[in-house]
């Protein structure tokens, strides 16, 4: 993957930026998530999770299977307040 490839689309992070965080000594999935925001956007890591695992595995010389993932949390798919509360949603985003 080239340095300029976008790894996390929601938070607009490139492979290079993630490699820099790893080089600065942040080694786990949770740690990198917390400093870079990777995986914290609307899709909650659907694409970037795998890429980050690969980067961490390559940097650590281990297999991606050996790396702990961050927790999947509800609601897993974005859902708006009106739908949750069971009230009418506005037609336009007022």
């Amino acid at each position: 993957m080239c340095d300029k490839t976008i790894i996390c689309r929601c938070e607009d992070l490139t492979a290079e930026e993630i490699r820099e965080w790893i080089a600065r000594g942040y080694s786990g999935f949770e740690e990198i998530k917390r400093v870079s925001r990777i995986g914290m956007g609307a899709c909650q890591g659907r694409t970037c999770r795998r890429h980050l695992l690969n980067e961490l595995a390559r940097a650590g010389g281990i297999s991606p299977a050996e790396i702990d993932l961050s927790t999947f949390r509800p609601p897993t798919k974005p859902i708006n307040f009106a739908a949750i509360a069971g009230v009418d949603q506005d037609a336009k985003n007022s």
Partner: peptide, 24 residues
């Protein structure tokens, strides 16, 4: 999250259509 949605809509009606992405 259900109660929260009601509280938020009451206080900030314009947030009705805003999406929640994570709950912890």
């Amino acid at each position: 999250i259900r109660e929260l949605a009601e509280k938020i809509i009451e206080q900030f009606p314009i947030m009705k259509n805003v999406n929640v992405i994570r709950h912890w």
